[in-house]
């Protein structure tokens, strides 16, 4: 039976979709069977970031409404054969997602995949609460910035109250993924440090993804960053996060802790 992960944040634009694609690909590159599910009905983008936008025929809403079979809606990645995408609908809205329908789809995916990764829409409305509802593990994507931290705190509260796990009195397994981190700015005192965010949110750290041009480049190309440039700093951070999800007790690398000669002189605009 596979594990269900929700990638969530409350705030938009912090890197949920990028992280879903990168972590999904990283897990699949290690041979696990992975499906990434876009819950952002009406504003889908996971297909675009994964480079599968022209291959979408059926979507999550079609499956829930009984207009297509699950196997018809799943899109197999062209680069990694154990990676699949279940796209969201672009034309309908979130009200087409019913709690019963979502439950059925997730249950079916769990039997066929090792990992079911749900890319949550921003906000705290039904789309977001349905995306987290059946999760075993939550990844809270946060930027080191006040509004993102505040929204993450709110989402942590929802994870502890509105999920099936919470309702059964079980503990939701929550992890912090700190993205768009700029070590040089944090060092200068102009950005919240890793420890600040950890202390405020008090959930364990899954990884730190540095702000990087490589992330934009990868999305331009329609490729998860772990596939586009596996040696880049953000890709390495996602590979490590994927290993931690599998239970490896890897030490966390804080980007920029070892700065070279040129880095010290010129500072760092991007990792």
């Amino acid at each position: 039976m596979g594990k269900v992960i929700v990638v969530t944040s409350g705030k938009g634009g912090v890197g949920k979709t990028t992280s879903t694609a990168a972590l999904g690909a990283a897990l699949a590159q290690n041979g696990d069977k992975v499906v990434v599910v876009d819950f952002d009905v009406g504003l889908r983008n996971l297909d675009l970031v994964m480079g599968a936008e022209r291959r979408v025929v059926y979507d999550l809403v079609n499956v829930i409404q009984g207009e297509a079979k699950l196997t018809q809606a799943l899109i197999r990645d062209k680069r990694v054969e154990t990676l699949y995408l279940l796209p969201a609908s672009q034309t309908r809205d979130k009200d087409n997602l019913t709690p019963e329908g979502v439950e059925k789809v997730i249950a079916a995916l769990k039997t066929a995949f090792d990992w079911v990764i749900c890319d949550s829409p921003a906000g705290i409305e039904s789309g977001a609460t349905l995306a987290m509802r059946h999760a075993d593990i939550a990844i809270v994507v946060t930027n080191p910035e006040v509004s993102s931290v505040r929204d993450s705190d709110r989402i942590i509260g929802l994870l502890d109250s509105k999920t099936v796990k919470a309702e059964k009195g079980e503990r939701m397994d929550k992890h912090l993924l700190l993205t768009r981190y700029e070590p040089a700015r944090a060092e200068r005192g102009d950005m919240l440090k890793v420890d600040d965010v950890l202390e405020i949110l008090s959930i364990p750290l899954l990884g730190i993804v540095p702000e990087s041009m490589d992330v934009l480049r990868a999305s331009n190309l329609g490729s998860p960053v772990t596939l586009a440039d596996g040696a880049s700093a953000p890709a390495r951070a996602y590979f490590e996060a994927a290993r931690r999800l599998k239970g490896d007790a890897l030490p966390i690398t804080v980007p920029g802790e070892k700065r070279g000669f040129f880095g010290k002189i010129f500072g760092r605009k991007a990792a």
Partner: peptide, 11 residues
């Protein structure tokens, strides 16, 4: 430095 202010306000 502005980060300490951010941290305190958030707390």
């Amino acid at each position: 430095e502005s980060a300490p202010a951010a941290r305190e306000r958030l707390q």
